[in-house]
Design a protein around this nucleic acid. Structure first.
Lengths: 163, 163
DNA sequence: CACTTTGTTCAAGGAAGATTGAATTATGGG
DNA sequence: CCCATAATTCAATCTTCCTTGAACAAAGTG
């Protein structure tokens, strides 16, 4: 049976957890997601789902869903040890890797959505049936230019953060 | 009395409003904020609070609060015309200006918060009373390095977007 | 093949946050 | 100074999203 003491994070670890909870809040992520990444970051070692449930005092459901999100953006890796059925989770702390995951899984899809939406918008403005007010067309082109600029910015930021 | 027709945005304008509503959603802004900016952007002219209330079908309270947020980040300018007590609101559509407002009013304060929090974290880890686990200190330094990198990134992005 | 352990799913409940609208405060004109 | 109009505030309500926990699925073991 595993030791029952220190099942609660130490004060210093608690501070790390709060740090990531607040970061997550800025990114409008659920509190549990910040907590999970925070604990994994603070511990710096592999933990099981049950460890997270016990040490953070959250439900299995929250832990499972939170871990899915974090794996989705490449912020957490899962591994296994032979003869053990548990999943072992570990925080990814390499900034370049984190950035790469974020760009690929979050930003790319949002850019694509914006693409579609801009195309639809363009079509709506050009459709004579919609009687687009004067000057609207010019302003929509400005949106396009914003979007193009943002798109060209991504690789620039990307390379900077890898330095 | 003002004309009562076309009190509702045209289909093309509606599309612009939806566009900004979705953008706002990514930034976790209330729907009403996206709607207000969208309508002002689409119209390209000065509108009163009452115009917004009528054309968007939102309450005066929402309009007032939404406009405050938008003015706060410099996305909306207010002006007056002599002999008229109303406020006239207008969308800021210059990207450099928008970026500057965002950096100054949003990012700067968040960076500062992160600063404080990192300092507190550093102190907690260094405090012997907290019995910080082994290696935690190294990982917290890594956080510092992330933060420094992000800080140096801001002016870079800033200049790029002004080009 | 039944059993045990581990992880996932999802409907119900709860918490956080947005919206409303009426009361309140500001502002300019008569 | 009072009135009329414009804008803000804020408590109550509604909505949206997060969390929970029990039921379910998966997967290894004897």
């Amino acid at each position: 049976m595993a030791s029952v003491c220190s099942v609660t994070p130490s004060p210093a670890e608690q501070e790390v957890i709060e740090f990531f909870t607040h970061i997550g809040r800025y990114l409008s992520l659920p509190r549990s997601v910040g907590q999970i990444y925070g604990l994994l970051f603070a511990k710096g070692e592999k933990l099981t789902l049950d460890d997270l449930v016990q040490q953070l005092g959250i439900s299995k459901g929250s832990a499972s869903q939170g871990l899915r999100v974090l794996r989705g953006v490449g912020a957490v890796r899962v591994s296994h040890i032979p003869g053990d059925r548990k999943d072992y989770f570990e925080a990814e702390t390499e900034l370049p890797t984190l950035i790469r995951g974020f760009l690929r899984d979050q930003l790319a899809v949002k850019m694509e959505h914006a693409d579609e939406r801009l195309a639809r918008l363009q079509a709506a403005v050009d459709d004579p049936a919609n009687a687009a007010p004067d000057g609207l067309s010019v302003r929509v082109e400005r949106l396009q230019s914003w979007h193009n600029k943002a798109r060209r910015l991504v690789p620039l930021v990307s390379t900077f953060l890898k330095m």
